[in-house]
Simulated assay, not measured.
Amino acid sequence: MFVTIVIILVLALILFLVGLMMGYGVLHSPFGIFNPNTWTHIFELTGSLN
């Protein structure tokens, strides 16, 4: 049971990262999503850090 939950969580994380890369990769480099400066810029644009 525990192994099944771990596998599902790992697969969900992988699919989440692939989705981020596909969405960001439409206009920019897909691997740019792993750059901390990208996240800082996104948070500044959305006002999430305030």
Rank of each mutant, 00 (worst) to 15 (best):
M1W: 08
F2W: 12
F2R: 09
V3D: 06
V3A: 13
T4I: 15
T4S: 12
T4C: 11
I5T: 13
I5Q: 12
I7E: 02
I8E: 10
I8N: 11
I8L: 15
I8K: 14
I8C: 08
I8T: 15
L9F: 00
L9Y: 06
L9S: 05
L9W: 09
L9K: 03
V10R: 05
V10L: 11
L11Q: 14
A12I: 13
A12R: 10
L13E: 10
L13P: 01
L13S: 10
L13H: 09
I14E: 06
I14K: 02
L15C: 09
L15E: 11
F16C: 15
F16V: 12
F16S: 14
F16P: 05
L17F: 05
L17V: 04
L20Y: 02
L20P: 01
L20E: 04
M21K: 02
M22I: 14
M22A: 09
M22W: 07
M22H: 05
M22Q: 08
G23K: 07
G23N: 10
G23S: 03
G23L: 12
G23M: 05
G23Y: 02
Y24A: 06
Y24S: 07
Y24M: 08
G25T: 11
G25R: 14
G25N: 05
V26P: 02
L27Y: 08
L27C: 06
L27F: 06
L27A: 10
L27K: 10
H28W: 13
H28S: 13
S29Y: 00
S29G: 11
S29D: 07
P30M: 12
P30C: 14
P30R: 09
F31Y: 14
F31M: 15
F31Q: 08
G32Y: 02
G32R: 12
G32S: 09
G32D: 11
G32P: 01
I33A: 09
I33C: 04
I33W: 01
F34M: 09
F34Y: 13
F34P: 04
F34S: 04
F34R: 06
F34Q: 05
N35A: 13
N35M: 10
N35G: 00
N35D: 08
P36M: 04
P36G: 09
P36K: 10
P36D: 07
N37V: 02
N37I: 06
N37D: 02
T38H: 03
T38E: 02
T38Q: 01
W39H: 09
T40G: 02
T40F: 04
T40P: 00
H41F: 13
H41W: 15
I42S: 00
I42W: 00
I42G: 06
I42K: 01
F43Q: 10
F43Y: 08
F43V: 11
E44M: 07
E44Q: 07
E44I: 09
L45M: 08
T46P: 01
T46I: 10
T46K: 01
T46L: 03
G47A: 14
G47L: 11
G47R: 15
S48T: 08
S48W: 00
S48D: 03
S48C: 03
S48I: 07
S48P: 05
L49Q: 10
L49N: 05
L49E: 01
L49V: 06
N50A: 14
